[in-house]
C-alpha cells in the first residue's frame, strides 16, 4: 500500500510537469491556432540554465526565476519566428517551431555540451502514511497547483487575460474590436515559454536533462493537451496527471520498458476518437 502511495505521488509530480508543458501548448494553440513543437525545448533551456546558474554559485530562487525568464524569452523569440510574418498558416508555423527546436539543439550543445545535466533541488524526503516521498516531488506538485490557480485568475479575471481568451474565442471578432491578434499571440508564446520553463526548472533535479529530452517532453505534453482538444487547460491537466500516474505505475510495477508506448498509444486513441466526433462538434461551432 505504501509503495502504491509512493508511486501515486511520484506519478502526480511527473504528471504536473507534463501538465505545465501541456498548458503552454494549450495557451499558444488557443490564441494562435499553432501547435508549438518547441514547447519541450523551453523546459530544456530552463533546466540547463538553472544547472549552470546554480553551478556558478547563484542562490536558489534567483537561479530558478532567471532560468524561467530565459525560457519565456525563448518563447517570445519562437513566436516571432512562427507567427511574426503575416500570412504564415498554422501548419507552416508548426514546421517553423520544429525548426526552432532543432536550432535549439545546436545552441544547447555549444553552450552545455551533449551530456545530461542535473541540478540540486530540495533535498530530503518526508514520510506520508508510511510512504517516503522526496520533498522535490511535493514542491513540484505545490508549484504546479499555484501556477494553475494563477493561470485561471489571469485568464478569468484580468482584462489582458480576457483579451487572450477573446482571440481564442473568435479571432475575427477580436480584430473587429481592435485587438492586435498577432501581438497577443506573441504574448501567448512568451507565456508558453514561461510555463515550459517552470516545468524544466522543477524537473531537472528529478531527472537529468539533455538537449534532446525535448522530444519526450513535447510528446507527453501533446498527449495530455490532446485530451482537452488542445483548448481546455483543465482537461489537459487531468490528462497529464493520468499520464504521469499511469507511466510511473507501469514503471514501478515492472513494465517500465513500455511506458512510452503506453503514453503514445493512449494519445493516438484519444485523437482518433476525438476526430470521429469532431465533425459534429465542428458543425455546432459554425
Amino acid at each position: 500500500m505504501s509503495a502504491f502511495l509512493g508511486y501515486l505521488l511520484n506519478g502526480l509530480a511527473v504528471g504536473c510537469a507534463i501538465a505545465l508543458i501541456a498548458s503552454g501548448l494549450v495557451a499558444v494553440h488557443r490564441v494562435t491556432g499553432v501547435v508549438n513543437f518547441a514547447q519541450g525545448t523551453f523546459a530544456v533551456v530552463a533546466g540547463l540554465c538553472v544547472s549552470s546558474l546554480l553551478g556558478l554559485g547563484l542562490p536558489h530562487g534567483l537561479s530558478e526565476v532567471a532560468a524561467v525568464l530565459v525560457a519565456a524569452l525563448a518563447g517570445l523569440l519562437t513566436g516571432l519566428a512562427a507567427i511574426g510574418r503575416p500570412g504564415t498558416t498554422p501548419l507552416s508555423s508548426l514546421i517553423v517551431t520544429l525548426g526552432v527546436g532543432v536550432l535549439a539543439y545546436a545552441v544547447e550543445i555549444v553552450l552545455w555540451g551533449d551530456q545530461p545535466r542535473s541540478a540540486p533541488g530540495l533535498a530530503g524526503s518526508v514520510t506520508v502514511a508510511g510512504a517516503r516521498i522526496q520533498t522535490q516531488h511535493l514542491l513540484v506538485i505545490a508549484v504546479t497547483a499555484v501556477t494553475f490557480v494563477l493561470l485561471a485568475l489571469f485568464f478569468g479575471r484580468t482584462y489582458l487575460g480576457k483579451a487572450l481568451t477573446a482571440c481564442a474565442s473568435n479571432p475575427y471578432a477580436a480584430r473587429v474590436v481592435g485587438l492586435d491578434v498577432r501581438r497577443l499571440g506573441l504574448l501567448a508564446f512568451a507565456l508558453g515559454g514561461l510555463l515550459g520553463g517552470i516545468a524544466g526548472v522543477l524537473v531537472t533535479p528529478l531527472r537529468p536533462i539533455s538537449f534532446d529530452t525535448d522530444v519526450t517532453l513535447i510528446v507527453n505534453g501533446f498527449a495530455a493537451a490532446v485530451f482537452g482538444g488542445l483548448t481546455r487547460p483543465v482537461v489537459a491537466l487531468a490528462g497529464a496527471l493520468l499520464l504521469g500516474v499511469a507511466e510511473t505505475m507501469a514503471a514501478g510495477y515492472g513494465y517500465g520498458a513500455h511506458q512510452l508506448e503506453v503514453a503514445l498509444g493512449l494519445m493516438l486513441v484519444v485523437m482518433i476518437v476525438r476526430a470521429g466526433r469532431r465533425s459534429t462538434i465542428h458543425q455546432e461551432a459554425v
Binding site: 510574418r85 517553423v96 525548426g99 536550432l103 545546436a106 551533449d114
Partner: peptide
Amino acid sequence: YAPSVLSYAVYALVLIVVVL
C-alpha cells in the same frame, strides 16, 4: 561537437528560412 551542431543548425535555419 562541431559536426552535429553544424548539421542541426543547417537543418533548422534552412527549414525556417525556406518556410517563411
